[in-house]
Write a protein that binds this DNA or RNA. Sequence first.
DNA 1: TGTCGCACTTAATCTACATTAAGTTTCTGT
DNA 2: ACAGAAACTTAATGTAGATTAAGTGCGACA
Lengths: 193, 193
Amino acid sequence: MDHSLLLSSIAKHVTLDKAEEEYLVSLLHYKKARRKQFVLEEGDVSSKIVFVTSGCLRSYAVDKNGTEHVLQFAPSGWWIVDMRSYITGEPARLNIDAIEDTGYLFFHKADFEELNLKVPKFERFNRILGQNAIATYQHRQIDNAIFAAMERYANFCQLYPSLIKTLPQKQVASYIGVTPEFLSKMLNTQIVK
Amino acid sequence: MDHSLLLSSIAKHVTLDKAEEEYLVSLLHYKKARRKQFVLEEGDVSSKIVFVTSGCLRSYAVDKNGTEHVLQFAPSGWWIVDMRSYITGEPARLNIDAIEDTGYLFFHKADFEELNLKVPKFERFNRILGQNAIATYQHRQIDNAIFAAMERYANFCQLYPSLIKTLPQKQVASYIGVTPEFLSKMLNTQIVK
DNA sequence: TGTCGCACTTAATCTACATTAAGTTTCTGT
DNA sequence: ACAGAAACTTAATGTAGATTAAGTGCGACA
């Protein structure tokens, strides 16, 4: 289990001392998920906070026809959780699974909360992380509200230049909110890029 | 200027002592906005964090045809900000204006940051507030992805039972992501509620 | 106290994107 | 190395919701 990515991501915002780092690391768990394996299934409680170290996870919701709608990709360095379920203990509405073989670190809820109480700098980090997440959600919401499918695709390419190369097209379609058929047509009809 | 709503909303999550409360209050400013007045205009920098005490604000983005898309309503007790602009100092993509005459408290960015550094309990409050906001954004995103317009309307009625009575229908239409014409037709065609 | 603007309605027409279906290609597991 | 399953494509048809346009009712301000 390699914590360096997590620690360096924390170090961008706060400076933990040796003891704090060791304490943090002592609460950390590591797991692997093979391609297509679930990290969280809709209906279960999201009782972990997950940080991806290798590979890629995705979160998605399923509509009444069974169609999947991707909300987020989490390549290495990203956090992922069903936040409502985490906070309230209600069953999750999101599924989280692995797009490719993935390694991830996680905190159990009780440990994460304790860490916030005992290490104020960690709480600061999480306050800042929360603000950044809000900024990201607001922008996604604006983009979805004011842009047509083609522009959302262009946005996606800019936002995830690395993912666009490795991700199956149908995952991208699901993220930008169109069917794979429509995305295919769009890309082969219009002169793009 | 009345801080009681803000203080009681903080008190739900952390217990500030007298000195901390006084310090917080000393950094607080109060303003009124008349109906239709801007609190933030697209292109300006969102350098305040706003907490509504009376009336109602809204945030919205404008598409290339000039159509407004409401992202959030902020009745009393709610916070509102263009978070990316607040964090980075970039120009805001959101407009924030008053739906009716509104009173609001706000922190300047420098004061808000200082308060977080000096009062760890305030930072805890903001960490929790951030988590709650993320939960809300995730749910809105799921709803938009998997529900049709009529279901989004029903959701809205459940989520904002007070607003649905006072808000002009066109604002509701803009929030749920349809035209006023289509919402009107939907409500008068289908047997609702 | 009237009128001007704005919220709301109705209805015809239009369009971005969905659905269905069938065929081709490219992975993936054994 | 091969079989089956995915991913991708193409194209015909379908539909939720947009656009345009015209008209009604009401609340605010001169």
